[in-house]
Each structure stands twice: as C-alpha cells, then as structure tokens.
C-alpha cells in the first residue's frame, strides 16, 4: 500500500482580472471578469513508505499546490489524493498528527520568544509524550546543532538557523511523512549542507518518508533518489535521477591530460570545449561507440598521462529538459507530457 497516491489530480484556480491604469480601474468598478488557471493538470504518481522524493519544476509549475493538496489544505478540482490511505481534506485533523510540514518562507514560530517556547507549544498541540519529545528534540538538537540558539528569541536567528528550527519542529511529533516546500532557498552553503545531511539521516534512520520541492538540484542529488518533475502543471518526469541522466545526460565530459601538448587535434565524435595547454576537455555524445574507444584511439597517437570522464551535472540536464519542453511547447502547443515513465 502506497503511503501517498495521487491519481488524475487537477487543480484549477480562478483569477479575477484587474485592469491597468486609471481608466482600467474605473472599469473594474463595474465588471468582474476572471480567468481560469490550471495549476495542476492530471497528475498521477504514488510514493511508498520510506521514500525520499524531490518534486521539481520551474516557478509556477504547481509544486506548492500539490503539497497543499496532499496536506489537506486544498481540495483537488478533479482526481483523488490519498495520504496515509485517507482523503487528506476529510481526515485533515487526524492526518496532520502524522504529517510534518515546513513551508520555507512562512514561519510558524513565535517571533519574540525563545525557540523552546514554540517547541513546547508544538508538543502540547500534537500531544507528544514527554519521553518521545525529549528523544526527538535530542535527535534534532544534536544533528542540527540547535543548542547554540535554542534559548534565543526567534527574531535574533539567522535565516539558516530559523529553517533548522522549523524543520526540527516539524519532526517533533515523529511524522510518517515530511513535506518541505523549498527548504534550502536563500540559505548559505553551510546551512544548506547541514540541512541536507540531516534530512538524509531522517529518511534513512527514522524511515520518514520525505517529499520536498526545490529549485536546487543539489538537494535532489543528496537527499532524493527519486524525482518528479512538473512543468506548467503537468508531470513530465517521474523516476530516478540516474534514469533521467541516462535518458537526457547522453553527454560526457572527457578531460585528457596529455604528456605533451599535441596542438589542436580533431577526432570526429568529440568536440573540444576547453583547452588549457596539455589539458584538454572534450564533449562526448553517445552514438554507438563508447568513450573508451575514443580515448584509446587518441592514446594510440598521443601519449596520455591521465583521463577523467565526468557526467554532465544534473542541473544542466534539467536545464536541457526545460529547454526541450519549452521548444516543444512552441512547436506544437501539444499537451502530451513527453517524458513520463522511467521506473518506479
């Protein structure tokens, strides 16, 4: 039984139109026009207990809307969402006892009071027993190093500290699923790193199911083996990071360190993209032959000291995916998702 199952879910918002300018605003005194905007379009997926899934997409792709439907905040316009085998909206109060939710930009903390006050209130609201409160707080305090600022008023915390506190709070009641909406946005590298390590630990040690939306591919690479990509409301990819790489990441970067600078060399199938003396970087596109064939062919002619083969990073893969999607959109105005599939 999947812990989350989303089938054929669509969400439509209604937006009232405003007219620009002075004349426009007079006009809006008398008319009320609206347009419908499809935020989520016929999306289906399911998540098993213990998975960690990254939910990706450009701005306005409907990521937050999906989280809101799974947490019971919003109702789908069509289709069915089931979380913990319940309709989230109907079982909202009961389900929320088993869900942890972190909305990155919207704090639930008491601004002027020490962090512990917010925690204790949370303990009260979620009826957490003394023992498990102590245990969970200890776990979070240690791994997120909260002890330095746990007695400070929230207003004095840095953004990164605040986010750590928010995440810790969402875990105090040992939720089965943790939803995070952009947990690392706007944070510095150190804070990002700590949060990622922590979330990975939560997923692996506590077997908490994690679903997070993000812009940052690093989040996905370090936390989530699986990702779901949405664009303009539709699901465009659901599968492992590796599978997407093999689908789209058919390019490799080959860095060859020659014994001596061979001058400019040309080999069909390899494109020279960077030259630093005897160190040259080629871009390789898969086409039947393997990278090693090329390398050995080069090695026959020129002595080679070292070779490294790098995958193109996932970020460029995603960028390529978006570009491809945009191009297809322009061409056909087609509505079919192009890349659905890929295991799971």
């Amino acid at each position: 039984m999947s812990i989350i199952s989303v089938s054929g879910v669509t969400k439509i918002y209604r937006q009232y139109r405003r007219f620009p300018g002075i004349i426009g605003s007079v006009r809006s005194l008398f008319t009320r026009q609206y347009s419908e905007e499809i935020a989520v379009k016929d999306i289906t997926f399911s998540i098993e207990k213990g998975e960690a899934v990254g939910y990706l997409g450009p701005n306005g792709a409907g990521k937050s809307t999906m989280i809101k439907m799974m947490t019971g905040i919003l109702l789908p316009s069509a289709g069915e969402v089931r979380v913990l085998n319940e309709i989230p909206h109907k079982a909202r109060k009961n389900n929320s006892q088993h869900l942890g939710v972190v909305f990155g930009q919207r704090s639930q903390l008491w601004w002027d009071l020490p962090v512990t006050d917010s925690f204790e209130l949370h303990k009260y609201i979620y009826k957490i027993s003394d023992e498990s409160y102590r245990k969970n707080l200890g776990f979070c305090t240690e791994l997120l190093s909260l002890s330095d600022f746990i007695n400070k008023p929230v207003r004095q915390l840095s953004l990164g500290q605040r986010m750590r506190v928010e995440i810790a709070m969402a875990l105090l009641h040992e939720p089965e699923i943790l939803f995070l909406d952009e947990p690392t946005i706007g944070l510095d590298v150190m804070a990002k790193d700590q949060i990622r390590q922590f979330l990975r630990a939560v997923n692996q040690e506590k077997k908490t199911t994690i679903l997070l939306t993000t812009h940052d591919m690093k989040d996905i690479e370090e936390i989530c083996p699986r990702m779901i990509i949405v664009n303009k409301g539709s699901l465009v990819y659901d599968g492992s990071v590796a599978a997407l790489r093999s689908k789209l990441g058919d390019e490799r970067r080959v860095v060859i360190e020659f014994a001596q600078d061979p001058g400019s060399i040309e080999i069909s199938g390899l494109t020279l993209i960077k030259e630093e003396g005897s160190r040259k970087t080629f871009l390789f596109t898969r086409n039947g032959t393997t990278v090693f064939d090329y390398v050995s062919r080069i090695a026959e002619k020129y002595p080679i000291e070292d070779v490294s083969i790098e995958d193109v990073d996932i970020e460029s893969i995603i960028r390529r995916l978006y570009k491809q999607l945009a191009a297809e959109d322009e061409e056909s105005q087609g509505r079919q998702p192009i890349l659905v599939g890929g295991a799971n």
Partner: peptide
C-alpha cells in the same frame, strides 16, 4: 493572501 493561513490547516486543531 500571503499563505500563512495555510499553516493553521496543517495542525491537528480546529
């Protein structure tokens, strides 16, 4: 408007 209302709906309370 800014979405903070949502955080009320994720709590096990009225």
């Amino acid at each position: 408007k800014n979405g903070t209302f949502d955080s009320l709906l994720i709590k096990p309370v009225n």
